[in-house]
Amino acid sequence: MRFCATRGAPEFVLVVRFEHVGLRYENGPNVLDDVSFTLEPGSFHFLTGPSGAGKTSLLKLMYLAQRPTKGRIVMFDRDVTAAKRRDLPGLRRRIGVVFQDFRLLNHLTALENVALPLRIAGAKRRQIEAHVSELLAWVGLSGQLEAKPPTLSDGEKQRVAIARAVIGRPRLLLADEPTGNIDLDQGLRVLRLFEELNKIGTTVVIATHDRSLVSTIRLPELRLAEGRLTVHQPARAQPTEGSTRAVPSRGGL
């Protein structure tokens, strides 16, 4: 798999910036109260917190599936809370998401599922075919190109979902409990994949409540609790204020 790193002038200074963001669903309690943090290009974070702390909601705000009830969100240097609707698809294409429930389309083959982001972006058929089969081979699914999701195991579905999230070379990769359905060994494999992407500049955020995973790998942590977010550096790294540019340690892999 070749992820060719193109390091010229940076496309943007900040990947994500939340300023006093609050979120509540209609007539419900506040899910997020006053959340502020910044993600710089190339950073790698865990997003942790107990179930129901709002991890998925926070991710939704980041992949533009939800608008905040208060505060300001800047993505790729653009204020998305004030952005026009027609500008959002362009921003969404820079974001790869691995949904907790995968959200694969059951009537399409693995190959077609992974091809979706490229098709949407209007890529040429031949380009799509080359890229997709290469990536699926890389995640170990070269034998299941034409398989439909209902015939795949959870682990395989997850790899399809991950392939779909990364096929468009996203600048920001968001994964919601990507190791929830697989054992630790497979989980580490998945993390190694994310790490590869991170090395070529993709900003990665992995939401998990799996403490064993967090303690295995030393990464800065965005910790959500009671609607607020705090940033924690791994024990050996230097703590910084709110903003981090962490390079993941490979020690645990």
């Binding site: 992949y63 533009l64 599936a65 027609r86 698809p89 362009g90 921003l91 969404r92 294409r93 974001i95 998401v97 959200r103 389309l105 979706l116 982001p117 949407i120 972006a121 779909r164």
Partner: peptide, 16 residues
């Protein structure tokens, strides 16, 4: 609606 939502989230324009 599920498919449409997904297409929307991964950056499909309304036209698509």
């Amino acid at each position: 609606h599920e498919t449409i939502e997904l297409l929307h989230l991964i950056g499909a324009r309304n036209n698509y």
